[in-house]
Design a protein around this nucleic acid. Structure first.
Lengths: 200, 200
DNA sequence: GTCTATACCCTGATAGAC
DNA sequence: GTCTATCAGGGTATAGAC
């Protein structure tokens, strides 16, 4: 997992894996038919670890669903900093590196993206009427993903977190306007006592 | 250029290039010190062709600066369709594929991104007071780039243009709100005769 | 400037003893 | 199940005739 993330799939040789795991060729090929199956196992691990490795740490002590989304993005920001701006989303990097992926690999990439989007979509649904009813929660969640992936890509290319921060800041502006819009509409249509959607 | 775009840098062998160009090894190495220098020349070509190959065709017959931005995005949509959803932005793909790029390569990647962003920034500046004064034009332009890159990545992974369309649709919603906001503010502060920023 | 032939290295994967 | 040794193939780059 670490090698694929750090060097990419193509640039990681089987012998790299053997050295890193301190095993011999025979052992690896006893458990895996080939290199690609190692990648598949790594992708499955990523998916299984989505909650424990990513979401839970990011959301610890944060209950506001909108804030949770930006905490998640901040998690990536920290990864960018910690890697001196060489961080790449493991899934996104693999998705772009592997030009003609085996169907089973592509399926796992999709599953990983889908799990991420669903988690964000859950936050948006939890936010309920704080967002305009006209906004499609699934699509907005996906938009958060594209912002993250694009920001990570630019930050690494420029070797500068500011590129990532810019994307997040623009996304925040979008959210601010959506929240304001919903709050205003709510003002007009509902008794004051039932209003939600105050903007932080 | 075509091979790097279609198969990626690492998966394109020098002999692939030789076959595709119908030349022999000696000829290539007479002009280029090595494979990496071919990549560098390709990146320079992309940058030099930004206007003629991408912007001019996308903007032909379109004068509205905001619409130009979405025409540019639509250009990518067409590329996605034409490639059966295997399209990848050549620059973005290379940026993510090459994990430890030579500084001169990375510089060229940055230049390409920067040129793209500057073009969009030009549109935003041309839009003038149709956008809120508080919005940073450069940062918003960069946000358009992240939307494009993220959308292209997802569309290819899912093999579905809808993933790209979703991103563009969300971006459009953001723009709609910015345009409305500027128009409303303009209403309050300016005589009616000077107003701009009608929303299409 | 272009040709052919090839050096040299590393790749993923395998064979068969233990 | 793990070991060592090795295979066949393709990688980039070079040499030297023409």
């Amino acid at each position: 997992m670490h090698l694929f993330w750090e060097k990419g799939y193509g640039s990681t040789s089987v012998s790299d894996i053997l050295k890193s795991a301190d095993i011999n060729s025979g052992s690896l090929y006893h458990y895996f038919p080939g290199k690609q199956d190692v990648l598949l196992a790594v992708l499955e691990d990523y998916q299984n670890g989505l909650g424990n490795m990513l979401l839970n740490p990011a959301w610890e002590g944060v209950t506001d669903p909108i804030e949770r989304i930006f905490r998640l993005l901040d998690r990536y920001r920290r990864s960018i900093i910690e890697t001196d701006c060489t961080y790449g989303c493991p899934i996104g990097s693999l998705a772009l590196e592997i030009h003609e992926p085996d169907p089973v690999i592509r399926e796992q990439l999709v599953n990983n993206f889908a799990g991420w989007v669903e988690a964000v979509e859950g936050c948006l649904r939890e936010a309920g009427e704080r967002l305009p009813a006209t906004i499609n929660r699934r699509e907005l969640a996906q938009f958060v993903l594209t912002t993250m992936e694009g920001g990570v890509m630019l930050a690494r290319t420029y070797r500068d977190v500011a590129q990532f921060d810019t994307g997040v800041r623009q996304l925040r502006m979008f959210f601010d306007r959506l929240l304001l819009e919903a709050a205003t509409t709510s003002n007009n249509n509902q008794p004051a006592g039932q209003r939600h959607g105050e903007i932080s």
